[in-house]
Each structure stands twice: as C-alpha cells, then as structure tokens.
Amino acid sequence: MPPKRSLAPAASPPPRGLISSFYHGIKSPENASVVRSVAVFAIATAFLSSSWTDYLLPPV
C-alpha cells in the first residue's frame, strides 16, 4: 500500500491594508476610465477656480 499523501490547503494571500487595497483598486484596468474622469474633473476645477481663467477671456 503506498503511503498517504498529505495535501496542504492552498495558502491564501495575506490581507491587504487600506492603502494597498486603495492603490490596487486605482491601478486596476477595470477602473481606468473612472480614475481618468475624476482626474480630468479635478484638474478642470482647479484651473477654473484659479486666476489662470483670465487667459480664457477675449482681449478687450
């Protein structure tokens, strides 16, 4: 009779921390369009609330 083989259960990855899970969520290809949209919105809001918007006005 051959000896019995003991199969150890597959080790699960260690739980991620808050920052690590946030980083992996942002870098996920599934969320790329959402991350890009939020970034463009933040840049547009920062630009339009700054004094640089004077360059958008036509010269008088």
Rank of each mutant, 00 (worst) to 15 (best):
M1T: 10
M1V: 12
M1Y: 13
P2R: 07
P2I: 14
P2S: 15
P2A: 15
P2C: 11
K4S: 14
R5S: 11
S6Q: 15
S6I: 15
L7S: 12
L7N: 15
L7G: 13
L7Y: 15
A8D: 12
A11K: 09
A11S: 14
S12F: 14
S12L: 14
P13H: 02
P13L: 01
P14L: 09
P14H: 05
P14M: 08
P14Y: 09
P14W: 05
P14Q: 09
P15T: 01
P15M: 02
P15Q: 02
R16I: 03
R16S: 11
G17I: 01
L18C: 05
L18I: 06
L18A: 10
L18H: 09
I19N: 01
I19Y: 02
I19S: 05
I19W: 00
S20K: 01
S20F: 02
S21Y: 03
S21T: 03
S21E: 05
S21C: 06
F22H: 04
F22A: 12
F22G: 04
F22W: 03
F22I: 09
Y23H: 10
Y23E: 15
Y23V: 14
Y23G: 04
K27G: 02
S28A: 13
P29D: 09
P29H: 05
E30C: 03
E30D: 11
E30I: 02
N31T: 02
N31K: 01
N31I: 00
N31Y: 00
A32V: 09
A32I: 09
A32S: 12
S33M: 10
S33H: 06
S33C: 07
S33V: 12
V34I: 12
V34A: 14
V35C: 04
V35G: 01
V35K: 01
V35A: 08
V35R: 00
R36V: 06
R36C: 06
R36G: 06
R36D: 03
R36A: 10
S37Y: 03
S37L: 08
S37Q: 06
S37F: 04
S37V: 05
V38S: 03
V38Y: 03
V38D: 03
V38R: 00
A39E: 05
A39F: 05
V40P: 00
V40Q: 05
F41E: 13
F41Q: 06
F41H: 12
F41K: 07
F41A: 13
F41V: 09
A42H: 05
A42D: 06
A42I: 12
I43R: 01
I43C: 10
A44I: 07
A44M: 07
A44Y: 07
T45M: 15
A46M: 15
A46E: 15
F47T: 10
F47C: 13
L48A: 14
L48I: 13
L48R: 06
L48D: 10
L48E: 10
S50V: 05
S50T: 08
S50Q: 14
S51T: 13
S51K: 11
S51P: 00
S51C: 10
W52P: 00
W52V: 05
T53W: 07
T53L: 04
T53Y: 09
D54S: 07
D54E: 12
D54Q: 08
D54K: 03
Y55K: 10
Y55P: 00
Y55F: 05
L56E: 01
L56Y: 00
L56D: 03
L56P: 00
L56M: 04
L57V: 06
L57I: 13
P58C: 04
P58D: 06
P58F: 03
P59G: 10
P59E: 14
P59M: 07
